[in-house]
Structure formats: structure tokens, C-alpha cells
């Protein structure tokens, strides 16, 4: 198959699709950085850094709007079909998810800003540990989703879609541990609530990463795989066989 953004007799269309693809990747990198910065700000309880993330969220919002403007323009002028149509629709959907990832980063930054106002004690290493473990997982998922988008590789997207819901399981165990902390010392209560909110935000980042992978899969394979595995995931049933043959098709 031709690369999804190339090979048109009208070369300008190639350029426009490439530009759209690059903008989406750029937005993806920005949102990834937002999450990473939010985690670093939380780790360091740095209120100033947290404020910077909140400011940066507007940039991401503007990107979403301007990418969608490009999408509407391309549909109006090029009347795309088949792969072109799927590329354009998938990117439009992807930027919606990316914008929400940035919102989750801003949510974490907001909580950090509250924690860092100095009027309370810091949450302590033990409480933060779960958050940071989940943060690494969420970032890893985002990076793999963006790599699948970058290379338009359905095998990589598949890996992310079929993977068992580590984030959900991690959230549940983090929730249990935080509950224990609260029971041990009631003064932990405020921190625990905030950190549960952060964990929830990170779990959502993972969900958005999976959505991005699903749109990449649709873009490449022309099949909509949303909600196919939700039942399994909700029951916590592992959906990946680690002994499976690697899916070598690059689509």
C-alpha cells in the first residue's frame, strides 16, 4: 500500500496530508511533554512549573482548533475517499484525544499547585510512589501510540490495543494502598484524595493513548476496533498472550 500521505498525482494534496500528519504528531509531542512536566512538577512539588503547564494548555487547545480547521478545509476542497478519508478522519479524532490528554496534565498540574502552596505538609515519598509508577506507564503508552501514528503502523497499534489493562490494575492497587495510608494516619486524608485524582487522570491518559492506537488501526486497516475489547478489560482479563507470534505486518 502506498504511504497514506503520499503518491497522489496532485502533489499538493500529498503536502497537505503530510502537513496535517506532522501537526498531529507535533501536538502529540506537546501533550506528552505536558504530562511529563506535570509529573516532574508533582514530584518536586514545584508550583511554578505547575502554573507553566496550565498556561501551556491553551497552546494545545489552539492546536486542536487549527488542526480541525485544516481537516474541514481538506474535506471541502479535496473530497477525500478511502485511505485519504480515513487518514483525515482519524487525525481529527486523534487530536480530540490529545487535547484531553493535555487536559489531564493540566488537572495534575492544578492539584500540584494546590499541594505546593506550602500551607500543608508534602505527601511524602510513599504516597507519591504509586503516582509516579502510573505516570511512567501512561507516558510509555502515549509514546507508543504516537510512534504508531508516526509510522502509521497497525502492528504497533495492535500491540497497544490488545495489551492487558495494566493501568486499570495499577489504579486499583494504588487505590488500596492509599486507603491503607489513610487508615493508618487520618492526616494523610487530603493528600490521598488528591493523589487518587492524579492516578485517575493518569489512567485516563492511558485510555486516550489506547484510543489514539485504535484510530491509527482504523487509518491503516479500515476497520473500526473501538469497544471490541472493553468487556475483557473491565473484567481485568488479560487479553495478551505473551507467547504469541509477533505480528510482522506493517500495514
Amino acid at each position: 500500500m502506498a504511504h497514506p500521505t503520499e503518491g497522489h498525482t496532485v502533489k499538493r494534496f500529498d503536502g497537505e496530508l503530510n502537513h496535517l500528519h506532522l501537526r498531529a504528531l507535533e501536538m502529540g509531542m506537546l501533550t506528552c511533554n505536558q504530562v511529563r512536566d506535570a509529573l516532574n512538577a508533582l514530584q518536586q512539588l514545584d508550583g511554578g512549573k505547575a502554573m507553566a503547564i496550565l498556561d501551556q494548555d491553551r497552546t494545545v487547545d489552539h492546536m486542536e482548533v487549527s488542526i480541525d480547521e485544516e481537516v474541514v478545509g481538506l474535506i471541502a476542497r479535496r473530497a477525500p475517499v478511502a485511505q485519504d478519508l480515513r487518514t483525515i478522519i482519524a487525525i481529527s479524532k486523534i487530536v480530540t484525544d490529545l487535547e484531553r490528554v493535555a487536559d489531564e496534565a493540566a488537572r495534575i498540574a492544578g492539584i500540584t499547585h494546590t499541594l505546593a502552596d506550602g500551607s500543608r505538609s508534602s505527601p511524602g515519598n510513599q504516597l507519591l510512589r504509586d503516582v509516579l509508577v502510573m505516570g511512567r506507564m501512561a507516558l510509555d503508552m502515549m509514546q507508543r501510540a504516537l510512534h504508531a501514528l508516526d509510522t502509521m503502523n497497525s502492528a504497533q497499534a495492535t500491540a497497544l490495543i490488545r495489551e492487558r489493562d495494566e493501568m486499570g490494575l495499577e489504579f486499583q492497587s494504588a487505590f488500596r494502598r492509599l486507603t491503607t495510608f489513610v487508615m493508618e494516619d487520618h492526616s494523610n486524608f487530603g493528600h490521598a484524595v488528591n493523589l487518587v485524582l492524579v492516578c485517575k487522570a493518569l489512567e485516563r491518559v492511558g485510555d486516550h493513548a489506547r484510543n489514539v492506537a485504535e484510530y491509527v488501526y482504523f487509518l491503516v486497516e479500515g476497520r473500526d476496533v473501538r469497544h471490541l475489547h472493553n468487556g475483557e478489560r473491565e473484567r481485568g482479563v488479560p487479553t495478551v498472550r505473551h507467547d504469541a507470534e509477533e505480528d510482522g505486518d506493517a500495514g
Partner: peptide, 29 residues
């Protein structure tokens, strides 16, 4: 620095992960 490892700031996009995909039930074109 807590359990935050360097990869949080330096991981390039698309680092290989131990998860391998399965091909069953994924509708393909």
C-alpha cells in the same frame, strides 16, 4: 528524586515494550 527514572525525561518515542500483539479477533482489511 524518588522512583522517577531517567526514562521519564529521556525516553524516545516508541521504545520497544515486552508486549507482543495477537492477531486473533482484530478485524483486518
Amino acid at each position: 528524586v524518588l522512583c522517577m527514572e531517567p526514562e521519564l525525561t529521556e525516553t524516545p518515542i516508541g521504545v520497544a515494550t515486552p508486549v507482543t500483539p495477537t492477531t486473533d479477533t482484530m478485524p483486518r482489511r
